[in-house]
Structures are given as structure tokens and as C-alpha cells.
């Protein structure tokens, strides 16, 4: 039994070592759980779209609800212009959601509890959104840093703040997901440890706490996937419809 609650986040090689010079691209337990999550999504979507029926069955209904949920989220936050990016947002939301949920299973690994994973996703979104913004609006996209209706005296200060806030988007986006996942899983592990150490006499209290925390973590798992997706929509909205 691992006493250290951080041990669950250890990444280790699964299978053979894949190395290109100095670069280690070995398949790890993190990669394995990414693959498991992606496979679950693929299997689910395959089963739900296999028999297209006019009156949907349960599994078809779930996939259509998911579709409508993401579609509504995008149209509410980014408008109709964001339609071409629907498959990406959908994939992003479903992937993060399933990774988070798979991470809730005991002895599994939470892919999204690693900063590098969330950072890669956030950086990709940040760079893509910036490119889209410049492609759509040219240099006018820079006006995103200059909000309208601000007194001229405050303008330099506000612009600097806007630039900092824009540049910190990938950090906040990635750290929000990673920190939530890590904190939740660490907490669960710590309380699990309390249950063992307090034993049959006093273990009931942390056990009940642990149960409640598990419920909370499932909520957080959904919420963080939702937040990640909706923030992506909002950034996309800034790039597509220059509001400022």
C-alpha cells in the first residue's frame, strides 16, 4: 500500500522503450489510459451510431444528448461562426470528460492530473485561437487588447493588463484542470489512508467523508471538462467575433 498520496501520479514505462536519440517516447501508463479513454469514447460512439433509429434507443439517446449539449454550449458562447470547430470542441470535451471519469476508478491513472497533458491541450488551443484571430481579422485582432469605452488615461494600463490576461490564458486553462484533478485525487488518497490507519474503530468517519468526496470528485470531473470546453468556446468567440 502506497503511503504517499502522490505515488498515484507516477508515470512509468509500459512495454518496450522507444527512444529516438535523446528523446524518450516510450508508451507509459499515462498513454495507456489515454488510449483506454479514447477507446471507450470510440466504442461508445460506435455503438450509439451503429443502428440509426428514428426513435432512439438508450445509447443513441445519450450520444444525441451529448451532441446537443455541446452544440448548445458552442452556439450560446461563440455563435454560429464557431460551427466548423464543433468536432474539435466535442472531441475535447468528451476526451477530457472520459479521462476524468476513468481516473475516478480505483487503481486507474488520471491523465488530466498531469500538467504537461493539460498544458499541451491549452497551448494548442491558445495558439490555434490566436492564429484564427489573426487570419479572420488581420492586425485588427490586436484591438482585443484595447477595450472600448475606457478613458484614455487608463488605456496603457488596461492594455497591459489585457495582454497579460491573454497570455496567461493557456496557463490558467491548463492549471485549472490539472490542479483540480490532482487535488481531488490526492485528497481521496489521503482520506483513504486515514481509513486504513484509523482502522475499524475510527475509520468510519474518514470513510464516509471519502464517499462524499467521491461524489464531489465525479461532479468536479464533469465540471472541469465542461469548464475547459466552455473556456475554449469563449476564447474562440473572441477570435471569431471581435467584440471589444
Amino acid at each position: 500500500m502506497a503511503a504517499n498520496p502522490m505515488v498515484q501520479f507516477n508515470v512509468y514505462r509500459v512495454g518496450p522503450e522507444i527512444k529516438f536519440g535523446n528523446i524518450d517516447l516510450s508508451f507509459t501508463n499515462s498513454s495507456l489510459f489515454m488510449l483506454i479513454s479514447a477507446s471507450i469514447i470510440t466504442l461508445f460512439l460506435y455503438l450509439s451510431t451503429k443502428n440509426k433509429r428514428l426513435v432512439p434507443g438508450k445509447i443513441q439517446l445519450i450520444s444525441e444528448l451529448l451532441y446537443n449539449f455541446v452544440a448548445k454550449m458552442i452556439s450560446d458562447t461563440a455563435g454560429s461562426k464557431a460551427k466548423p470547430y464543433f468536432p474539435f470542441i466535442f472531441s475535447l470535451f468528451v476526451f477530457i470528460l472520459v479521462c476524468n471519469m476513468v481516473g475516478m476508478l480505483p487503481y486507474s491513472f488520471t491523465v488530466t492530473s498531469h500538467i504537461i497533458v493539460t498544458l499541451v491541450m491549452a497551448l494548442f488551443i491558445f495558439i490555434a485561437v490566436t492564429i484564427i484571430g489573426f487570419l479572420k481579422h488581420g492586425l485588427k485582432y490586436l484591438s482585443i487588447f484595447v477595450p472600448s469605452g475606457v478613458p484614455v488615461v487608463l488605456l496603457p494600463l488596461i492594455t497591459i493588463i489585457e495582454i497579460i490576461s491573454y497570455l496567461s490564458r493557456p496557463v490558467s486553462l491548463s492549471v485549472r484542470l490539472f490542479a483540480n484533478m490532482m487535488a481531488g485525487h490526492t485528497m481521496l488518497k489521503v482520506f483513504g489512508g486515514f481509513v486504513i490507519s484509523l482502522g475499524l474503530v475510527g475509520g468510519w468517519l474518514p470513510l464516509s467523508f471519502s464517499v462524499a468526496l467521491t461524489g464531489l470528485e465525479i461532479l468536479v470531473a464533469f465540471l472541469q471538462a465542461y469548464v475547459f470546453a466552455i473556456l475554449t468556446c469563449i476564447y474562440l468567440n473572441d477570435a471569431l467575433n471581435l467584440h471589444h
Partner: peptide, 23 residues
């Protein structure tokens, strides 16, 4: 924090990109 150990950062990024693009 194992998250801050850069040993498998490239590997994680690489597999994330591969798997996510496929998905």
C-alpha cells in the same frame, strides 16, 4: 510531485497528440 518530473513529458505530449488526433 511526479507531474513536475520532465522525464516522460515528451512521451506524454507525443502520445496525447497521436491519440487525440486519431480520436
Amino acid at each position: 510531485m511526479p507531474q513536475l518530473n520532465p522525464e516522460y513529458w515528451l512521451s506524454q505530449s507525443f502520445w496525447l497528440i497521436i491519440i487525440f488526433i486519431t480520436l
